[in-house]
Each structure stands twice: as C-alpha cells, then as structure tokens.
Amino acid sequence: MRYSKKIRLVNQLGMHLKAAAAFVMTAEKFKSDIKIKYNNIVADGKSIMSVLGLGATYKSKIEIIAEGVDAREAIMKLEELIKNKFGEKQ
C-alpha cells in the first residue's frame, strides 16, 4: 500500500529539532517506509538528521509518503501530529 498527503506546517517554529524528533518518534511506530518531500528534496521520515535537513518552515507545505502494510494509519497519525503543532503551543 502507498499513501501520500500534502500538509501545511502550522507550528511557528517549523521543523526544528524538537518537532523533527516528535515526527520521527511517531514514524518509528509504523512498519511502513516513510518519506517527506519538500522543495524537491526527499527525506527519510525515520531519520531525525534527514528530517531536520529539509529546513521546512512555518506555513510551508510538505508531502508525507508512506509505503507498507500500515501506510494509511501512519499518514493519519502523522497528519494529526502536524495539525496539533507537534504538541507545541503555537
């Protein structure tokens, strides 16, 4: 199974270290391969180095791509995380 979704970052800090950590920790819960596409760069969603290297900012649109048995659920959870601003206040 392969699912993908474009989502806008709504936390003001963008993809900083803590946010990237939250993303990776969520992604690691799934068996699927998870990638993030931003500005034509593709990052490994389970590597914090890679996610951080995107330099994705507030309001920018990223695409999450999941491939594997639990791809659909993975996308759902990751979307929820981003919409909840990675648990940040703003």
Binding site: Q12, L13, G14, M15, H16, L17, G55, T57, Y58
Partner: peptide, 10 residues
Amino acid sequence: NISNSYLKEK
C-alpha cells in the same frame, strides 16, 4: 538560508 526567523534561531 531560511528567511523564517523562528526556525533560524532554533
């Protein structure tokens, strides 16, 4: 290279 200062500071 990022214009957004919030991320820059991080």
